Simulated scan of single mutants.
Amino acid sequence: MHAVRKCLAKMTVQALTALVLGNVAMVAGAADASSYPNRPVHLVVPFPAGGGADTVGRFLGAKLAERLGQTVIIENKGGASGAIGAGYVANAKPDGLTLLLGTTPLIQAPVFFKDLPYDAFRDFEPVARIALSADVLIVPASSGIESLAQLVEAAKKNPGKYNYGTYGNATSAHMHGELLNYQKNIELLHIPYKGTAPLMQDFLGGQLTIGLPESVGVRAHLDNPKLKALAVSGEQRLATLPDTPTFTELGYTDFEPNGWYGIVAPAGTSPAIVNKLSTILADIMAQPDVQAQFIGMGLSPGYGNAKQLKDWMQRDSVIWARMAKLGNIKVQ
C-alpha cells in the first residue's frame, strides 16, 4: 500500500508540474501577443519585385503596418519557384517578426523537387488565407469558338492544330492544360512562357490558339475584343468574369483548386501571435475598399483562418500531385 501511495503521489506531482508549466506557457504566449510586435516585421515575398505576388505583398504589408503600429518591411527573395524565400522563413526565429507571403507553389514544389529547403506542413504555421486567383482559358474571338465544348470538339477533329500557352512549365496552368488533355483525350501542345506578360503578347499577336493566363496577369486585357474567355479554374466564378463558368460547372474534375495568397509563419510561432495576426487580417479583408482593391488586381478576396488555410493546403497538395502525375509533368 505504501508503494501504491508513493506512486500516486509521484503521479500527482508530475500532473501538477505539467499543469503549472502549461499555464506558464499560456501566460507567456499571451504576454508575447500583447506586446507583439515590438520591432519591425519582415514580410518575405518569395518572388522578384514587380510581379503579382510583390504587388499583393506590398499592399498587404502597408495594411498590416497600420494595424500593428510597426513598420512592415517587404523582402523579395525570389528564385527556384519561391523555394528560396520559403526556405529562408522556414529557418527564421519563430517570433512572428518574419512572415512569408505564401502562394500556390509552396505546396506544388514538393511534387517536382526532392531537395527543398523546407517542408510545407512541418516547417510553417498557417496564419490566414487572403485571396484567390484562377487560370482563365481564353481563345481568339476571331476563332468563332464560343464554348469549351466547341473547343474540345474542334481539337478532336483537328489533332495537333491547337496549342496552349501558359506562364511557365510545371505551373498551375500547365497542369490544368494537361488535365484537360487527359480528361477529353485531346492533344493540345503546351508552350510555356516566362510569365503572363510574354504569353499575352504572343496570344494577342495571333501566335497562340489558346491561352491559359493567370487572372492577375490577364486582368488588364479582359475588355480586349480580341479574346474570348471560355472557363476559369477554381470553385467559384471570378468577380471580373461573372459570365464565364468554372471548369467544375462544365463537368470537369480536379479543377477546383485555386491559386492562393496567404500568410504563414515559421513553425513554433506562438499560437497567441498567430491568432492575433489572423484576427487582424480578417478585419483587413472585411473592408470594402480592400476587397475592391483585390478584385481590381484580378483576385477574389478569400479570407480563411489558420485552420482553414491548413486544411486548404493539405487538400490541394493531394490534387496537384495527382494532376502532375496524370499529365506526366516534370520540371524541364
Rank of each mutant, 00 (worst) to 15 (best):
R322T: 10
G96N: 08
A282W: 02
N163Q: 07
F124G: 02
G82D: 03
E146A: 15
L238S: 09
F294R: 03
F247T: 14
A90E: 03
D289Y: 11
L21C: 14
G327I: 11
I107V: 15
A286K: 10
A86Y: 04
L281D: 06
N169I: 08
T71K: 14
G211A: 14
Q332M: 08
M323W: 01
N185A: 14
P242E: 13
L100T: 05
L99E: 08
L106C: 03
H2T: 13
V318Y: 03
E75G: 00
L16Y: 01
V152P: 02
V218R: 00
L21E: 15
L179Q: 13
I319M: 03
L43R: 04
G304F: 07
P301V: 07
Q207V: 03
A141Y: 05
D135E: 15
Q291L: 05
M26K: 14
Y303A: 13
E178Y: 10
V56S: 01
E75F: 03
S278F: 05
N23K: 02
F59W: 09
S133H: 00
Q291W: 05
V264A: 12
D54Y: 03
T55Y: 08
F247H: 13
Q108N: 07
Q332F: 06
P192D: 01
G259C: 01
P40H: 06
E249N: 06
K325E: 15
K77A: 02
E125V: 11
A18F: 05
L222G: 02
D202G: 09
K228G: 09
K330W: 04
L277S: 05
K276I: 04
L68H: 08
G259E: 04
A128H: 12
M200D: 03
L43W: 11
K161L: 15
W312S: 10
C7D: 05
S133R: 00
P225K: 10
I138T: 12
Q14G: 04
M26P: 00
Y36P: 01
K161V: 14
G206E: 07
Y118H: 10
R129A: 12
V232T: 14
L19C: 13
G205L: 03
A197F: 01
L230K: 08
A65C: 07
N258M: 01
E235H: 10
V56D: 00
A170F: 09
G168P: 10
A18T: 10
K161R: 14
L309Y: 13
H190K: 06
L179H: 11
A134Q: 14
A173T: 11
G296I: 06
V20P: 08
K161G: 06
L204G: 05
Q287Y: 06
G102K: 00
V4M: 12
L188A: 05
Q183P: 06
G50T: 00
T98W: 02
E66L: 13
S300L: 05
T12C: 11
D115P: 01
L21R: 09
F247C: 11
I145E: 01
D135G: 15
P126M: 12
F47R: 01
Q108G: 02
I295M: 06
